[in-house]
């Protein structure tokens, strides 16, 4: 099976601080891959580098046989990589529908309504709230909007940066159920999480990122069972 995304020896710094110290990973088409890591491990840095919002100092990001390092963020979106960023980052003073439609910015206008209807069928709550300003939504609804907006780009690869952040357990469960549905439509998913249990239940494979380096790589089932992961990320559950 050929990889849709493969990252090798990626180094990313903020000034003197090196946040990623040679990270490698691969994601095959159709796979769901989770990256676990505690606060400050470098998860967001990795996601922002993949989307072209940060420029890697060295290393490579190959997607669909093309090098992405140095490519502009808006062009990477056109290649089929979407991201639901950490903290959701919805456009608070735009309506829900305007937020969604912006997701289809790179696509023909004639396709917007159809894609929007698909997102609404996945997240009916968003349809109810469609004329509301995004800033007035609850955290869970904003997360759904961020995911819906990313889906509007019609991605082959969906990057999710901590979709569970700050949400109540029931809402997290709901969102991960939706992510399962999305994965079943054939979208490849790379999710970074501190909520290891939810992420590993969704994923086929997983990595553990520790202060800028990959510490572990295994199938999701093995990681769930591993004592190292249980101690560090599952609270001995």
């Amino acid at each position: 099976m050929s990889d849709l995304l493969s990252v090798s020896d990626l180094h990313v710094s903020y000034g003197q601080i090196e946040a990623l110290k040679g990270v490698s990973l691969r994601v095959a088409e159709g796979e769901v891959v989770a990256i676990l890591g505690s606060n400050g491990a470098g998860k967001t840095t990795l996601m922002r580098s993949l989307s072209g919002l940060l420029r890697a100092k060295s290393g490579s990001i190959t997607y669909d046989n093309e090098e992405l390092v140095g490519r502009r963020a808006d062009l990477i979106v056109r290649k089929g990589i979407a991201q639901s960023p950490e903290g959701r980052r919805v456009f608070g003073t735009l309506t829900v529908e305007e937020n969604l439609d912006l997701g289809a910015y790179t696509r023909p206008i004639s396709e917007t309504a159809g894609s929007r209807a698909e997102v609404y069928s996945t997240f009916p709550k968003l349809q109810e709230r469609r004329s509301q300003l995004a800033g007035t939504l609850s955290g869970g609804e904003q997360q759904m909007l961020a995911i819906g907006r990313a889906l509007m780009t019609k991605p082959r690869l969906l990057l999710l940066d901590e979709p569970s952040l700050g949400l109540a357990p029931l809402i997290v469960k709901d969102i991960f159920t939706k992510l399962r549905t999305i994965a079943e439509t054939g979208v490849t998913i790379l999710v970074v999480e501190q909520n290891a249990r939810m992420a590993l239940k969704l994923a086929d494979r997983g990595y553990v990122l520790e202060v800028g380096r990959m510490a572990l790589e295994d199938s999701a089932a093995n990681l769930l069972a591993s004592s190292q992961v249980q101690e560090a990320y599952l609270g001995k559950g």
Binding site: G52, A73, F91, Y105
Partner: peptide
């Protein structure tokens, strides 16, 4: 659409880039 992109870029440039907008 471009007008909405202008408003979006004013709110959050990085999020706008993630929509494929050339800020």
């Amino acid at each position: 659409r471009f007008g909405t992109a202008i408003r979006a870029s004013a709110i959050d440039q990085d999020a706008a880039r993630l929509m494929g907008i050339n800020v």
